[in-house]
């Protein structure tokens, strides 16, 4: 009571969990809510998947051809060091706002996946590779027997880190670029109209979707680790 009296506009500054949950339940009953979640998830997770494929392929090329690694090293260092908001503004100049979240999330995912897959390739057991060479084991079997068991633990920890990063950066890009009908646009609207319960509700949605996808993705990686380990 005393707090309520001291801060008569408390809900405006800091929404209570109850009001955020009520707002979330009300939003979840609308098609626009699911469309926004779907659109943002498609862009952000699309960027994540694309970046994983690209980063793993380039890590394999870097391990095979030193020049590729040397060419990529300054780019990776730049992506790691430059603030994400600088990339978002730059990307807004190059791209339309609809592609922004995909591009930014891909960009944030690239360095950890690339560097960890490269480290995993470097950690592959040289003695086993020599054995495979002597017995003329085809590459496909080497991939399943030696390379994947070496790389997957590195990839797993990088993917766990990258999934959190890509949601944060992807939604930040949407808040700045304002692509229509996305979670980022809804967050921006909530901020403009001081709809604090909406802000909390959408934040909870981002966290929930991010955590759910992380669990699903890592479970799939774990299943693959078990498969290649046997």
């Amino acid at each position: 009571m005393a707090l309520a009296a001291a801060f008569p506009h408390g809900e405006l500054l800091l929404a209570s969990p109850v009001s955020a949950l009520v707002r979330l339940a009300s939003l979840a009953g609308t098609g626009a809510f699911w469309a926004a979640v779907g659109r943002s998830a498609a862009a952000i997770l699309g960027g994540f998947v694309l970046s994983c494929v690209l980063a793993a392929s380039l890590a394999a090329l870097s391990a095979r051809f030193r020049a590729v690694g040397e060419l990529l090293a300054p780019l990776v260092a730049a992506v790691k060091a430059v603030p994400v908001v600088s990339f978002i503004i730059l990307a807004l100049v190059w791209l339309d706002s609809d592609s922004l979240a995909l591009f930014i999330s891909a960009l944030m995912v690239f360095p950890p996946i690339y560097l960890n897959v490269l480290a995993g390739i470097g950690a592959a057991d040289r003695q086993l590779l020599e054995m495979a060479r002597v017995f003329r084991v085809p590459f496909r079997r080497q991939l399943w027997g030696i390379w994947l068991p070496a790389v997957l633990p590195y990839f797993r920890s990088a993917a766990s880190l990258a999934l959190g990063l890509c949601w944060k950066a992807g939604v930040a890009a949407e808040v700045i670029g304002l692509p229509a009908g996305t979670v980022g646009e809804r967050l921006y609207t909530a901020k403009v109209y001081f709809q604090t319960p909406d802000l909390f509700a959408w934040t909870a949605v981002i966290v929930a979707v991010s955590v759910a996808f992380e669990h699903l993705f890592l479970a799939a990686v774990d299943a693959l680790v078990r498969k290649v380990g046997r």
Partner: peptide
């Protein structure tokens, strides 16, 4: 010539069973 070797170290796929190790080489 096709070579086969027993190395100084065993060089086995430690996480796999004997079938997996033999299948890896013999296909």
């Amino acid at each position: 010539r096709r070579l086969a070797a027993v190395f100084q170290e065993d060089r086995l796929l430690e996480q796999q069973d004997w079938r997996g190790n033999l299948r890896f080489v013999l296909g």
